[in-house]
Amino acid sequence: MSDFNLSAFSDAIADIAAAAAPATASFATHQHRTATAFHWRDGYFVAAEEAVEAGEEIELTLSSGDKVKAELVGRDPSTGTALLKPTGAPDVPPLTKAGTVRPGHLAIAVGNSDGASLAAFGTVGE
């Protein structure tokens, strides 16, 4: 019989997701869906490029529930990323850099939906 403790493993995964959650924000897309943005650094948030339209009004809902206006300041269709700059300086920690990953490693995807944390668990595919 293995000494593996599934409950402790699950708690560790939940703790990792909870630690990352404050660095997330959500916003309504032009398609009336909710998308997640991540505080990258220096007050900038990164989101999926397809979720943001040029000239649209963006309001980020932080994990605290606070709302801040943001503007699209850059996009890169080749990587699928958009760079958002909130007005003011929200007190949000940036994500920490992950270590090296390879196919088969365990991964946790963390998101935000109207201030509520979301998490999914899986493996790195490539």
Rank of each mutant, 00 (worst) to 15 (best):
H105R: 09
P77F: 11
V124G: 00
P86R: 01
V52M: 12
T36G: 04
A120E: 05
F27C: 01
P94R: 13
A89T: 15
S2K: 08
L72S: 05
V124N: 01
A109M: 01
A107M: 06
E126N: 15
A48G: 08
G80V: 03
A47V: 12
S7N: 09
A107W: 01
V52C: 00
T100Y: 15
A21S: 14
V110H: 07
P90K: 08
L62F: 08
G74D: 02
A8G: 03
V68F: 07
A109K: 08
G65T: 00
V73A: 00
V110M: 04
R102N: 09
S26Q: 03
S63K: 13
A48T: 06
A8P: 08
E56L: 05
S26K: 02
A17S: 13
F45C: 12
L106P: 03
G111T: 05
S26R: 07
T87Y: 13
L118K: 09
A35S: 09
G65E: 00
G43W: 07
D11L: 03
A21C: 02
P93N: 06
A18P: 04
I58V: 14
P22G: 01
N112S: 08
L6P: 12
F27K: 03
R102Y: 01
G104D: 03
G115Q: 03
K67G: 05
E56V: 09
Q31L: 06
E56Q: 07
F45A: 02
S113K: 14
D91I: 14
V92W: 04
E53P: 05
A70V: 09
S63D: 08
G55Y: 10
D42E: 14
A35M: 02
A28E: 07
L83M: 12
A19Y: 04
A35L: 00
A70S: 03
E50N: 05
V124R: 07
E57F: 05
I108K: 12
E71P: 01
P77L: 03
M1H: 11
E126S: 15
A107P: 04
E57W: 04
V92G: 00
E126D: 15
